[in-house]
Design a protein around this nucleic acid. Structure first.
Lengths: 114, 114
DNA sequence: CCGGATCCGTTGGGATACTG
DNA sequence: CAGTATCCCAACGGATCCGG
């Protein structure tokens, strides 16, 4: 048995090394998760602000991806119970560490494209 | 217009920073690509050897993922034209650089799981 | 030994409309 | 403002069988 995050497959003995990799890729592999983490690494952002910062994303997908990131402990969601509602998103400690990896991925990607 | 790898979406102005990230994640986001790159980072491996090293993967998926990695320039495929056939896979220069990122992802993942 | 071809279920993600 | 709810399609990935 391995970690078992959200029903993710077990880790057999031989691939135990790769499991954390698969898990991590699974957590940041969503179509918009990279840029969401990237934006949140700079500052906490509100829902519609995030929407404006990510052209092309639908309300539905933004909600879904944020919920998954939240469930995985990468993003924190803070609701200010006022009218109009105010919901702010920011990275957790783990999310911040992830963002530095996103950075190195971007460095690699840029070099790859050049 | 952005890079345009395999019909991947365009990069608008505001998300130009995130595009290399999306591209990279798209290239390593396959279910088995992480572990394949991981294994190849140590040594070049033959097809069936790779199969044995990745319990649970089907022949079809191994072929597909290798083909994609090859098309993306991460993996090289060398055919020794003999009987029985011998096909060896190894990382390209870009693939090697990627494997160090995989390493840091694993470090993060391990810490996340602990 | 190293695949290709086919079928098919599951999931990811887009479009649109509605709500407290 | 910050979401839900539906519908729908395409891509992903597993199982199985066939071939050089």
């Amino acid at each position: 048995m391995g970690y078992g995050l959200k029903g993710y497959g077990d880790c057999s003995e031989e691939v135990i090394r790769a499991c954390p990799v698969e898990m991590a890729l699974h957590m940041i592999g969503g179509k918009w998760k990279g840029i969401i983490i990237d934006i949140l690494s700079e500052k906490s952002v509100r829902f519609n602000e995030l929407r404006r910062l990510i052209p092309g994303i639908s309300q539905r997908m933004l909600t879904l991806q944020l919920r998954e990131l939240e469930a995985d402990g990468i993003v924190k969601r803070v609701v200010d119970d006022t009218v109009p509602p105010k919901v702010e998103y920011f990275l957790t400690e783990q999310g911040n560490k992830l963002s530095s990896i996103i950075d190195s991925i971007r460095v690699w990607g840029k070099e790859f494209l050049s």
